[in-house]
Design a protein around this nucleic acid. Structure first.
Length: 399
DNA sequence: TAACCGTGGCC
DNA sequence: TGGCCAAGGTT
């Protein structure tokens, strides 16, 4: 970097090198005034910051907030997470997606308890060795929780750096190295603390942790201003330092496909309890292993039948157009709904159940009161909530 | 390196 | 309805 620190823009023009001091000052002033209040920004607990960073992988902030709050209520400490059965952890994750994250988080917590006396590693290098923690997450935890001066590079930071510098995004290793080096050059240097970084107590960011605040500000800028398609350059605090002013091609993505699907919603009464038929996915399934879902019906078996519910559900690059078939009717009465077991609709339970694929097994009649504590797939949770079979709440049962 | 893993919301 | 995602990691 050039030595000019006079503060004038002339030396920091779009075609020149980024002056880290000017850049940081403008970024942080903007962040101080524009940082969103998020639950994980109220804590200096490395465990809480870790949980938030895992949840935020490839997942929108808006989707994480509720899950984070409930997860931290359910598993407030690293010990409580390590001691919990995996099914409980998955149940708390149900609907958030990428369930491998939850399994690896759980595994890592157990590893830390048995091999590290409950101490989360405090350096990005050591954090990197834990399952589920890659380059980005290691840098995020190390800087935000422990003050290490290491740059985080997520999709937002990459886009911000590429636009600032005008470097082409050719998806090569050289481009990634360039972005990482540029990002690192902008991070404020601060002594690496080995203890968790304690917040000033106000709760609202910035917290007074130079590297952690800077990294969060970079991501915040990318997430709220330097948007992928319609960047709001007029609101950008470093607009005058930017080489491209937002003109930057965005990479193409793999096209989506559409596919029909059908599943069975079968309910029965057992005394005062209502039970629903669930199938447990194989433990070695490629997706969502050992999680519970409604039994799938072959498309041919439901020709001409009227579904109880239609909805769309996206899994990775496939849009599933799902039809739910119920042999029994849900009758709305007053405030809620109840099950009418003696009024089969167009088709009997036996008829529908008999067309389940032969490989279907692991069927379980499950009390609806237990649903919230089971690792349901997101689609199943959505259907059961939509049809009022389970409450639309994330509160899990007490012990 | 590239494919794969889940989801809810927005337009 | 269909397209496009959003704070990555693993294999």
């Amino acid at each position: 970097m050039k030595g000019s620190t006079t503060g004038g823009d002339a030396a920091d023009g779009p075609r020149g090198e980024l002056n880290p001091i000017t850049f940081r000052r403008r970024l942080m002033r903007w962040y101080r005034d524009n940082a969103r209040a998020l639950p994980w920004r109220d804590t200096s607990d490395p465990y809480g910051i870790w949980v938030s960073e895992i949840m935020l992988q490839q997942t929108r902030v808006a989707a994480v907030i509720e899950y984070y709050t409930e997860f931290m209520r359910r598993f407030p400490t690293l010990v409580s997470l390590a001691l919990a059965p995996e099914a409980d952890v998955l149940a708390a994750w149900s609907g958030l997606g990428y369930y491998r994250r939850a399994r690896m988080l759980h595994k890592a917590a157990q590893f830390i308890m048995t091999e590290r006396r409950g101490q989360l590693p405090s350096s990005s290098l050591e954090l990197r060795t834990l399952p589920g923690i890659g380059e980005y997450t290691a840098a995020a935890i190390a800087s935000i929780a422990f003050g290490e001066s290491v740059a985080v590079v997520d999709g937002n930071v990459e886009r911000v750096i590429l636009r600032l510098t005008g470097r082409a995004n050719d998806a090569t290793a050289a481009a990634r190295r360039f972005v990482r080096e540029q990002a690192q050059a902008l991070v404020p240097h601060a002594p690496v603390t080995l203890k968790p970084y304690s917040q000033s107590g106000e709760g609202s960011p910035p917290s007074g942790n130079p590297a952690g605040d800077h990294n969060q500000a970079m991501m915040e800028l990318g997430a709220t201003v330097c948007l992928p398609h319609a960047p709001r350059c007029s609101e950008c605090p470093v607009h005058s330092l930017c080489c491209t002013r937002g003109e930057h091609p965005t990479p193409t993505r793999t096209p989506q496909r559409s596919q029909p699907a059908a599943c069975l919603l079968d309910l029965r009464k057992r005394g005062p309890a209502t039970e629903v038929l669930l199938e447990c996915r194989p433990g070695d399934a490629a997706v969502m292993p050992a999680m519970y879902e409604l039994p799938k019906l072959p498309q041919e078996a439901v020709e001409g039948l009227e579904p109880a519910l239609r909805l769309r559900h996206a899994i990775t690059n496939t849009n599933y157009y799902v039809q739910v078939y119920s042999p029994r009717r849900l009758v709305r009465s007053g405030s809620g709904s109840h099950l009418s077991v003696d009024k089969p609709s167009t088709v009997s339970a036996h008829a529908l159940r008999s067309v389940l694929p032969t490989e279907t097994q692991n069927l379980h009649w499950t009390r609806t009161t237990r649903l919230a504590s089971l690792p349901l797939t997101g689609l199943t949770r959505k259907i059961l909530q939509r049809l009022k079979v389970m409450k639309n709440t994330r509160i899990t049962l007490a012990e």
